[in-house]
């Protein structure tokens, strides 16, 4: 999804991994949604992120990029408001 980051021109391209009221967690490089490990064939490189479980607030989605080989602190991801979603890529 294309997300409006700031102003009218700066956008981010991220993958929606969880919807509102779902629980998101990372355990040693594995994404868990509602406690279930997710298959992510689109990831090219392994990663080692660990993030405690958190619930997505109503009116929001949880987005993460595919390039997770960078340290978690340097990667822009997390829950964002649905109002910030501009659309999806065409290809």
């Amino acid at each position: 999804m294309v997300i409006r980051f700031t102003g009218e021109r700066i956008t981010l391209l991220k993958r929606v991994v969880a919807l509102e009221n779902e629980e998101v967690e990372f355990q040693n490089g594995k994404l868990l949604i509602n406690g279930k490990e997710q298959e992510e064939p689109y990831l090219q490189y392994p990663y080692d992120w660990t993030l405690p479980a958190r619930r997505v607030e109503p009116g929001s989605v949880y987005v993460v990029g595919d390039n997770r080989s960078v340290p978690m602190q340097n990667h822009l991801f997390g829950q964002t408001s649905l109002t910030r979603i501009l659309g999806g890529p065409l290809w």
């Binding site: 997300i3 700031t6 991801f77 997390g78 829950q79 964002t80 910030r84």
Partner: peptide
């Protein structure tokens, strides 16, 4: 002054 937190980890 508030920096808008677009993505909340």
């Amino acid at each position: 002054i508030e920096v808008v937190e677009v993505l909340k980890k």
